[in-house]
Amino acid sequence: MALNYTEIVRTGLSRQVAESIRAAILDGRLQVDDRLPSEDELARRFGVSRPTVREALKVLAAQNLIWSRRGPTGGNFVSQPDPEGMSRAITDAATLLVAVGVFNVDEMVNARLETESLCCRLAASNHSAADIAAMQAEIDLQQNASLSDEDYCASDVRFHRALVAATANGPMRLMMYAVIESFIPISNMLIFPHHERARATASHQNILNAIAAREGETAAQLMRGHLEGMRSELTGALDRRAAGRAPDSQSKTDMSKGSQP
C-alpha cells in the first residue's frame, strides 16, 4: 500500500486521513478500482480510531473519490473520476464567488469572451450533425414570442451548453461548466426583463450558421459581438438597480435632515 501513514498530527484527524488518501489517489499511487485497506487496518496504520477513519471515508465518498461494496468481497474502492460531479462542485463555488462579489460583471464577460470564442473555433471544426440540430432546436424555441423569460433563459443556457459540447473536447467541457451553468444564469437574472430577446436570438442564429459552415473565425467574432452587447445590457441593468436605490437613500437623508432641530 503506497500511503504515507506518518504525517498525522492530533488535530483534525479525519480531515488529515482523508487528505492523505486523496493525495494518493490524485498522484496515482492508488488507481481506479484499487481496494483500500479495511477500516481496522487504516485505523492501525494511521494511529487513529475507527470512527475517525469512518468519518474520513465519508468525506472521500462525498467527493466521489471512493465507493463502497458490502459482502465478503466488499470494502472501499477508488472511484472512476466523475467529470460531471466535479463540474457541479466548480459551478457551486463559482456561483458563491459571484454572489459575494468576488467576480464582477466585467470579469465574467471577459472570461466568456475568450473562452466562448475558442469554443466557436473548436465547434466549427469538430461539430456533428447532432450538435447543429441541438443548437438549432434551441434557437427555434427562442423565436416563440410566447416563451416566458424563465424558459428563454433556460433555452439560452442549453444553446451555449450545446455549443460547448460541439467542441468535442473533454477538458474544454469541464472548464466551461462553471461559465455555462453559473455565469450565464446569473447574467440572465440581471438583464431580464430588459433583455432584447429578438436580437439575442438573431445573434445565436448567426453564430450557429457560421459554425455549421465551419467558419470558426467568423463564429468567434460573432460571439464576441454578442457578448459585448450583453456587457452593455448588464451595465444598464446595474445602473437601473443603482438608480432604483438612490431615491430611498435620498429620502432617508432628507428625513434625517428634517428631523434635525
Rank of each mutant, 00 (worst) to 15 (best):
G85C: 02
V100K: 12
S232P: 11
A129F: 12
S125Q: 13
D149P: 13
T11V: 14
M176C: 15
D248I: 12
M175A: 14
A243M: 09
M108F: 01
R35P: 07
L118G: 09
L227C: 09
P247I: 04
K252R: 15
P72I: 12
A133R: 06
N104V: 03
E150V: 07
K257R: 10
R50Y: 05
R10Q: 14
G225H: 13
L13R: 13
Q16P: 07
Q221V: 10
T95S: 08
E41D: 11
A23D: 09
V100Y: 04
R69F: 10
A62G: 08
E233R: 08
M230A: 14
R69M: 07
G229M: 06
A165M: 04
M135T: 04
I8L: 12
A210V: 12
D106W: 05
A237I: 13
A43E: 10
E55H: 14
M86D: 02
C119T: 10
L97K: 13
A219D: 05
F183Q: 02
G74F: 13
R10N: 12
R88D: 15
Q16I: 03
S20F: 03
M255S: 14
V9S: 14
P37T: 01
S125Y: 03
N110Y: 02
G75T: 09
E107S: 03
A23P: 00
A242R: 08
Y5A: 14
I8N: 00
S79L: 05
E41F: 00
R245Q: 11
A130Q: 15
E7W: 08
